[in-house]
Amino acid sequence: MGTVSPERPAPALDPAPATLAGARGGSRLRVTAVDRAHAGELAREGVLPGAVIKVASRTPLGGPVIVVLGRVRLALSADVARAIGVETVP
C-alpha cells in the first residue's frame, strides 16, 4: 500500500473509457460498464459488466454494430454501442 507500481491497473474512473462504438470488427472484448440509461435494456440481452463479447461486423453508414454474445448475435445501434464500456480480452 502507498507505493504506486507501474503495473497498477487503470483506475476505475478512466477519463476517456473505451466504448464498443470504437471497437474494431473481430475484436474480443469484456464489458466493463454499461451506461445507466441503457442498463435495463442491455441486461435483458445479457450485456452485463463482465460479459465477454465479440464484434462480428459493423454495418454501413455508421449503422448498428453486430456482436456475438455466447450463441447469439445482437445488433446494437451506434448510440447504444457508445453506452457500453469495454476492455480488450487478450
Binding site: V72, L74, S77
Partner: peptide, 9 residues
Amino acid sequence: PELVLELAP
C-alpha cells in the same frame, strides 16, 4: 428508439 435487437438464427 435506439436499437438493441437479437438476431434470429
